[in-house]
Design a binder for these strands. Structure first.
Lengths: 346, 346
DNA sequence: ATGAAAGCGCTAACAG
DNA sequence: CTGTTAGCGCTTTCAT
């Protein structure tokens, strides 16, 4: 068995309280006895038992993350940044996965009841009022990433505005017949991105053909934010239209990857036949030259962690709903449509 | 505050021991009092405190995973399958990240000392004898994924054989001037894949130009298994050779993605000018039509979890070093080189 | 079958 | 400054 605090105390000839003070460097201890105790502790290779500490302190030094595992690379990059931000603290990260979007309740219930964590990060998952209330009642800090709830801290992207910018970019390039491929509308970002798209079209006096808007199916508890859904959507778009849009706003990069694959198969050239702008700027977007709206993913993860830790330490009060702006990253999938541009302005 | 076992006991008019028996459905309890207690527990919304249970039982019901966060999508897909396999048990997953391959020790030390977990999964990270010994001494089950140690259970891919098959595929297609792009040789799989490549070349009486073998640099604690490293390697290959190989075995898919990008920039066509076979079969390989060696990643994660749980439950004894075979997945990056094939056989 | 009591390993309040 | 003691919330003998 590993050494306990009693072993150290006995061998150092002191009480366990003093050992506790020594290892937690309390000020109320004689430096010399502290040194001696620390020496003995090292000899015995003593390591405090994290769980026992947690129980006594009523503080676990772990934070829980609830993630939809793993339908979209967006989550992963977020998780990476969370882990990175956390690595500078001494908090551990425990992962609660939800396998189906429509069954996040059981996972949240588990997080709540196990009480293994001092705070929780909920990624891309909606929180209903009931659960928001439970977390508040249990007095456990939560920050939502990529989602919102009026009573809970959150950090998200300005989806509507981002979609607006993406669409506007296409319009500025001279496109008039613009379509969109979106995730399922059970997804909060999907709704907002559609709104932004419509708003941009409207404000520029452009109408769009309903058949040029494809909403991916939600299945198996997902929201259609994956490559295959994008692929299927593009095939549908091509099949059901004799006249295709000249440009497409795709609600996520992974979907855009699928769109590109379907386009290639169908002999539809990008950007010559159809210009494409995605959303997210996942790592692979760069590799395929996808023009997209960049979410500052690393920043989101970091800010979320910082805010959560502040909350845990009781430093912050008041609601915090941070909205980060997406940034247009121009690469190759829109080509350069100067001709169209001029034409549009004439 | 949440209800404790004392609250339930008092309200039900029994001792805490009896409550404990009720919720842990011990056989030594009168069914009717059990029902009554369970009723009260529900009323009070009582949930046992996981940490207190852990401390008393000397069992945490969590497993630790040590992952190199996150230089390669391979890890992520592995983690996903681990999480999936675990979701059917009642174990939680805690994530210990190692940010630099060369500093995994501090992370392992932490895993060891915190004693938060009943078992640990170490992914793509080498374990030296000292740490292997520590885990054994601490009597905590470990399974290594994508690595080996003679004293520790492991599950890995047959890297040498996989590389051999990949190379052989190229040879069968008629290629003779074959190069390789590998990760840094501080990586265990990188070494084995190189061996497999050389073996295949040797056995088919093919010599390869040293300048056609590019070893990616290891930097920032990585092993060069990333897109940028592949990109750089390909640029180097092109720059330092007036006569390029006609085929390339790339040690990982992410690197192959970089290779493809560099090739495109340089006007080198794939597969026309250079055929490509990768390794891993990450999700994106399919999307870009990359011919590659498929690692049964999901299977590896699942088997690792199963084995670890068995170990934890004390069911299994004896060493377990499982090697899974990689499978050739033919897609488009090798074209079809019938002409070459015939020529080679003539 | 059930209650009482002794831990699990540690922290923190309380005396000195 | 330091030792003692009472928890933290639960499991598990040990009696009864």
């Amino acid at each position: 068995m590993a050494a306990t605090i009693y072993d150290v105390a006995k061998k150092a000839g002191v009480g366990i309280g003093t050992v506790s003070r020594a290892i937690n460097n309390s000020p109320q201890i004689n430096p010399s006895t502290k040194d001696r105790i620390l020496g003995v502790a090292r000899e015995l290779n003593y390591q405090p038992h994290a769980l026992a500490q947690s129980l006594a302190r009523k503080k676990t030094f772990t934070i829980a993350s609830v993630v939809p595992f793993f339908t979209n690379y967006f989550f992963i990059e977020l998780l990476r940044s969370v882990q990175h931000a956390l690595s500078r603290s001494n908090y551990d990260l425990i992962l609660y996965s939800v396998d189906r979007m429509d069954r996040s309740d059981t996972t949240l219930e588990r997080v709540l009841s196990e009480r293994r964590s001092d705070g929780v990060l909920i990624i891309s998952i909606g929180l209903n009022d009931a659960y928001a209330g439970k977390f508040i009642a249990a007095n456990i800090p939560v920050v939502l990433i990529d989602h919102m709830h009026f009573q809970i801290d959150s950090i998200a992207i300005a989806n509507r505005e981002g979609a607006y910018s993406a669409t506007e970019h296409l319009i500025a390039l001279g496109h008039q017949r613009i379509g969109m491929i979106d995730g399922h509308l059970s997804s909060y970002p999907a709704i907002l991105r559609l709104e932004g798209f419509k708003k941009a079209m409207l404000e520029h006096n452009l109408v769009f053909d309903d058949r040029h808007l494809i909403i991916c199916d939600a299945q198996a508890g997902e929201h259609g934010f994956n490559e295959v859904a994008g692929y299927l959507a593009m095939k549908r778009l091509i099949a059901q239209n004799d006249i295709l849009p000249t440009a497409l706003f795709v609600a996520s990069d992974v979907q855009a990857l699928g769109v590109m694959r379907a386009a290639k198969e169908a002999g539809v050239r990008i950007p010559e036949d159809i210009a494409l702008v995605g959303f997210d700027d996942i790592e692979f977007a760069k590799f395929v030259g996808l023009t997209t709206m960049r979410q500052p993913i690393a920043m989101m993860g970091q800010m979320a962690v910082e805010r959560l830790l502040e909350r845990i330490h009781g430093d912050q009060q008041g609601d915090f709903h941070h909205k980060l702006k997406a940034e247009l990253i121009v690469r190759e999938t829109c080509g350069s449509r100067k001709g169209f541009h001029v034409q549009a302005e004439s």
